[in-house]
Simulated assay, not measured.
Amino acid sequence: MPDSTVTPLVSLLRRLAIALGALVATALIVYFGRDGYIDNNAEGSPISLLDAFYYSTVSVSTTGYGDIVPVSDTARLWTTIVVTPLRLIFLITFVGTTVELLTERSRQSFRIERWRSRLRDHTIVVGYGTKGRAAVETLLGDDKSPDDIVVVDTDRAQLDAASALGLVTITGNATRSSVLRIAGVAQASALIVATNRDDTAVLVTLTARELAPKLRIVAAVRESENVHLLRQSGANSVIVSAETAGRLLGAATTSPNVVEVVEDLLTPDAGFAISEREVEDSELGGSPRHLADIVLAVVRGDGLFRVDSSKVDSLERGDRLLYVRKATPPDEDD
C-alpha cells in the first residue's frame, strides 16, 4: 500500500530537474560575472560559457580543482550568498535521494518481516477479479478478519480495490515461488486460486503445493477438461466456474425458485448460509438427522459423508457438521 500517489520515476525526475537547475544557475552566475574569475591554467583568457559550466560542475559537486577561482569581491560575494546555497541544494537533492531510498527500503523490509512473523493461518487469494472478489466477500461474511486475507495480483488497480477493504496486498506473479513465500504460503491455512487462465491456475497450484504440502488449495477453472490437471497438481477442491454458472442458468429457466435458494445459501450475510461447526458434547452418539440444525453433511477425518449415510448415523468426537444457519446482516451484529 503506497504512502504517496507520486510514482518513483516522477519523484526522481523532479529531483534531477532541481539538481540540473542548481547547476545551470551556478554556471550563469559565473558566466555573467566572468570578469571576476580567472583560469589559473589559462591566464589572460576570458571565462567562456563552457568554462562556466565546468566551474559549476566541479563547484556544486564539491570537487573543487581550484583552476577557476573567484578573485573580485563581487564574484566572491555571489559565491558566498548564491553559489554556496545552490551547492547545498545540489548535494541535499542527491544525498537525500540516496538516504531516502535506503531508509524506505529498510523500513519496508522491516514492515514485511514483522508482518510475516505474526502471520499465521491466513487465507491467500490469487487473482482479484470477479471470482476473487466474490471469494473475499464470502470470507468476510463468515467473519474472517481482513488482516487474515492476503491478495496476490499483478494488476495495481485490482490491488488498490483490495487495499480499500483493509486487505493485505502483494504485487507479483503467484506462479513464482518467491511471491508465494512473501505471502506466507507455508504458514497459510488455505489458498484460493481465482486466476483468469486455467494454465496459470495449474502453475500456481503446483508451486504452492511444492512449498506447502499440507496447505488446503481451492482452485477455479473455466473448462471441466482441466479439472484433472488441477487435481494432479495438488488442488483439494476444484470448481468449474463456467459449468456451475451454466447449470444455474439452465435451472433458472425451469425452477427459478431453486436458483434463488442456492444464491441465498451462497450469500453469507443475508437470509440463510451454509456453515461448518464442531459437534457439541451433547450431540455425541446422536444422529445428525435429529439435530435442531439442518445438517447437510458430516466431515469425519478426511471424508465427507452426506447426512443420510449409514457411516455417520452416530456422531463421534471430532466430527464436523455442515449445516444451514441463519445469516446475520452486518448492521445486526453486536
Results as ranks from 00 to 15, higher is better:
Ser145Met: 01
Lys326Cys: 04
Tyr323Cys: 07
Thr205Glu: 05
Ser310Ile: 01
Leu12Phe: 15
Ile182Asn: 08
Glu283Thr: 01
Thr62Val: 06
Val227Phe: 02
Pro46Thr: 09
Asn226Lys: 07
Asp39Val: 01
Thr267Ile: 06
Glu210Thr: 08
Glu223Asn: 12
Val83Met: 12
Lys214Tyr: 12
Gly96Lys: 02
Asp302Pro: 00
Leu167Met: 10
Ala22Arg: 03
Phe272Ile: 11
Ser282His: 00
Thr5Cys: 07
Val60Ile: 10
Thr97Cys: 02
Gly184Cys: 05
Val95Ala: 12
Arg116Gly: 06
Phe53Asn: 09
Phe110His: 15
Gly234Phe: 13
Ala134Tyr: 14
Ser56His: 05
Thr154Ala: 13
Arg116Thr: 12
Val6Asn: 07
Val151Leu: 03
Val240Tyr: 05
Arg114Asn: 13
Arg197Phe: 13
Phe32Asn: 13
Asn196Glu: 14
Pro146Lys: 08
Leu159Gly: 08
Pro8Gly: 09
Ala17Gln: 09
Arg197His: 15
Leu180Lys: 04
Ser287Lys: 01
Gly303Asp: 14
Val295Glu: 04
Leu304Asp: 09
Glu43Ser: 13
Trp115Ile: 14
Thr93Tyr: 01
Ser309Phe: 00
Leu77Val: 13
Ser282Ile: 00
Pro70Arg: 07
Val83Arg: 06
Thr103Gln: 12
Val259Asn: 10
Ala22Lys: 03
Ala220Asp: 02
Val58Asn: 10
Val126Phe: 03
Arg176Gln: 14
Leu322Arg: 00
Leu211Val: 10
Val218Glu: 07
Leu215Val: 12
Ala208Lys: 02
Ser282Trp: 01
Gly318Val: 01
Leu88Gln: 12
Asp148Tyr: 03
Ser117Gln: 10
Ala183Cys: 10
Tyr55Gln: 14
Pro213Val: 12
Ile182Cys: 06
Ala292Cys: 05
Arg300Gly: 04
Ala242Glu: 05
Pro46Tyr: 08
Ala183Lys: 08
Asp155Ser: 09
Asp198Met: 04
Leu50Trp: 13
Ser189Ile: 00
Ser163Ala: 15
Leu28Arg: 03
Lys214Ile: 07
Val312Phe: 01
Ala194Gly: 08
Ala75Glu: 15
Gln187His: 15
Phe305Ala: 11
Pro330Lys: 08
Val240Asp: 11
Glu137His: 10
Glu263Met: 04
Arg156Tyr: 11
Ser287Gln: 05
Val95His: 03
Asn40Ser: 14
Leu101Asn: 10
Arg277Met: 02
Ile47Phe: 05
Ile182Arg: 09
Ile149Gly: 05
Leu102Met: 07
Val202Tyr: 09
Asp281Phe: 00
Gly132Glu: 11
Gly286Tyr: 00
Ser310Pro: 13
Asp302Ala: 06
Asp121Thr: 13
Phe94Gly: 10
Asp153Gln: 06
Pro329Trp: 02
Arg306Asn: 15
Leu12Ala: 15
Val24Arg: 06
Gly172Leu: 00
Gly250Pro: 05
Ile149Val: 14
Leu102Glu: 08
Ala201Arg: 09
Pro256Trp: 10
Pro256Asp: 13
Arg289Asp: 04
Ser314Val: 02
Arg306Ile: 06
Asp147Arg: 14
Asp198Arg: 03
Thr57Phe: 06
Ala273Phe: 08
Thr123Glu: 06
Ser59Met: 11
